[in-house]
């Protein structure tokens, strides 16, 4: 076989790739996503496959495959999901770090998301904070704080009132002019000219997004995410609609923002961040003004978001009952440091 991966439909070759690692399978995902093909008609030939590739093949819905070099670790995955496989050579494992990182406890969905993150196929961008110290009015709020968040990862930061949670968020947003240390979002250092140009990649959901009853519709609020982009009005309207549909707020489009409930406001604000195409989402006490129903809805929305677009998300809150439901990794902000 010349190519690293070939895909057949009823014995006719319809796709091939010469890429390495898991990228050919992600290319197949994109290829199939653009076409209407029944997975039952497909046959896949791959040069090498381990547990990770097996999980992706299952996720793609492919039922029949031939693997030149197959890892024994892939076989339980194929068997569990009823994939018919054959191989040229079977080995007990392949030299692949990714295969080692997938544990038996991970569900297929979790494995798929993990692989997307490793392949950089998520919307998220990395966030790295080195020795961040912030003084406000002579009081040290953050003290040599360190944080390393990978692409598409989520983190909940908890802390008591006044512990510096909002200061941390505002520092990352570049809204606090004098900080010591460095904050890097993707490749850009906060405050640099490159960061300034890419500032839209950071979305911000604050506690209360409007202070009075100024007339502005929910759709206009979502469109704020596109404020700095020059787009035709039709494209602008399309993106607003898409973002509102994703967050289930499309029906609120023409309603006045200040008349919405707390939960509806947060849906609309989240749509604003999606419309902005934010790759890092910073959420500052997003449940502050929400009732139980609103909190539940926001929880579902954030969990969905973390599985689909998967932006990197940092959420600060003192509401541990609610944040526990998200099942994200957590840290405590105390004494100006994260623990």
């Amino acid at each position: 076989m010349e190519h690293s991966l070939v895909l057949f439909q009823n014995e006719k070759q319809i796709f091939f790739s010469d890429e390495h690692w898991l990228y050919p399978l992600f290319e197949v995902e994109q290829f199939l996503g653009e076409r209407s093909i029944s997975p039952n008609e497909l046959f896949l030939r791959d040069k090498i496959a381990g547990k990770a590739a097996a999980a992706l093949i299952v996720k793609l819905g492919i039922r029949n495959c031939f693997i030149e070099l197959l890892s024994e670790r892939a076989i339980p995955v194929f068997k569990k999901y009823g994939v018919n496989y054959s191989y040229q050579k079977l080995v007990d494992h392949i030299q692949c770090r990714t295969e080692d990182l997938i544990t038996d406890k991970m569900t297929l969905e979790e494995t798929y998301l993990f692989l997307r993150k490793r392949a950089g196929k998520v919307q998220g961008v990395s966030l790295k904070i080195n020795s961040l110290s912030v003084d406000i009015a002579g009081k040290q709020i953050l003290d040599n704080l360190e944080l390393d968040l990978g692409r598409g990862e989520q983190l909940v930061v908890q802390g008591e009132n006044g512990s510096g949670k909002t200061t941390l968020i505002r520092s990352i947003l570049g809204l606090i002019p004098s900080i010591n240390g460095s904050i890097t979002i993707g490749e850009e250092v906060v405050g640099s000219s490159g960061w300034q140009k890419n500032r839209v990649q950071t979305g911000y959901l604050n506690q209360e997004t409007i202070k009075n009853n100024f007339p502005i519709t929910a759709a206009e609020v979502v469109a704020i995410g596109l404020s700095s982009q020059k787009l035709p009005e039709t494209e602008r309207a399309y993106r607003v609609e898409l973002a509102m549909r994703k967050t289930g707020s499309f029906h609120l489009m023409s309603k006045l923002f200040h008349q919405l409930s707390g939960g509806e406001k947060q849906r609309v604000s989240l749509a604003r961040c999606l419309c902005q195409n934010a790759r890092l989402l910073l959420l500052d006490e997003p449940t502050s003004y929400l009732d139980e129903k609103g909190r539940e809805e926001l929880c579902e929305l954030l969990v969905d978001l973390s599985k689909n677009e998967a932006p990197t998300m940092l959420l600060v809150s003192h509401d541990s009952n609610w944040t526990d439901r998200l099942k994200w990794q957590g840290k405590i902000l105390k004494g100006g440091k994260l623990w």
Binding site: L173, V200, Y204, N206, T209, I216, S228
Partner: peptide, 19 residues
């Protein structure tokens, strides 16, 4: 009009939207 709308809505949100 788009940038002004953002500034009127919330100055912090406007900045993070690149305004």
């Amino acid at each position: 009009r788009h940038q002004l709308r953002a500034v009127f809505f919330d100055s912090d949100v406007a900045r993070t939207a690149g305004v």
